[in-house]
């Protein structure tokens, strides 16, 4: 599994497809956090929104970076296609959690805030929720599930925008709203985190089902 993840990281880094979503996220982070001196939680709400978009994009880019024929060869070496899928998800999560760290600590370096451990923990929960949900959306919109790039883009756009913007939809929109109103509802946040993890597992199961039913 480690060898598969290592290969996934190498392919992804060489493909340079991570650049656009990473730049998008860093740009949003800079706009939101530079010289900011307000409360941290509403800031983490904005950063979570940007991270959700960036991680869904990163996941699609990562899973689509390997050509289907290369993927077939990799599957023969790995023995089972599910291992290759799991490695892909791990690589996407590694990239996502790299950005979680940047999103969590960036505001402390770029602005001037009064920091409490509770703020950091809630921020971590919010950013993790965004990463899990973004990875789940990316899985469903990858070539493994939706073959045609046009459809894939349309589904990604609708999926990301509705989860981000439709009022009260859990986990991302509801979480962002809760945080930006400055009401740290810890139980609620952990609930959204758990829901996002469930979404990710469901998306992975669906993607593997799509892969095996097509072959």
């Amino acid at each position: 599994m480690i060898a598969l993840i290592r290969y996934g990281v190498a392919t992804f880094l060489h493909s340079q497809r991570y650049l656009a979503p990473v730049v998008l996220f860093l740009g949003a982070l800079a706009i939101a956090a530079l010289n900011d001196g307000g409360p941290l939680l509403p800031l983490y709400a904005v950063i979570s929104g940007a991270l959700f978009v960036a991680t869904s994009w990163i996941t699609v880019a990562q899973l689509n970076a390997e050509d289907p024929v290369h993927r077939a060869v990799t599957i023969v070496h790995a023995g089972r296609s599910v291992k290759v899928l799991l490695a892909g998800v791990c690589v996407a999560l590694l990239a996502g959690f790299g950005l979680v760290l940047v999103g969590l600590l960036g505001p402390l370096l770029m602005g001037h805030h009064k920091v409490s451990p509770a703020d950091l923990l809630l921020g971590l929960a919010a950013l993790s929720t965004a990463t899990f949900t973004g990875t789940a959306v990316g899985l469903i919109c990858s070539r493994l599930v939706i073959r045609r790039p046009g459809y894939s883009f349309a589904v990604a756009l609708v999926g990301v925008l509705s989860l981000l913007l439709v009022k009260g939809i859990p986990p991302v929109n509801a979480m962002i709203r809760g945080l930006s109103e400055g009401l740290p509802d810890i139980a609620g946040l952990l609930g959204y985190l758990a829901l996002s993890a469930v979404l990710l597992v469901t998306a992975a199961v669906l993607a593997q089902a799509a892969v095996t039913s097509r072959d």
Partner: peptide, 14 residues
């Protein structure tokens, strides 16, 4: 974009 040696090394490790 990997080279032949890198690609083969990855496949062998897998």
């Amino acid at each position: 974009r990997l080279s032949a040696t890198e690609y083969l090394a990855h496949m062998g490790r897998i």
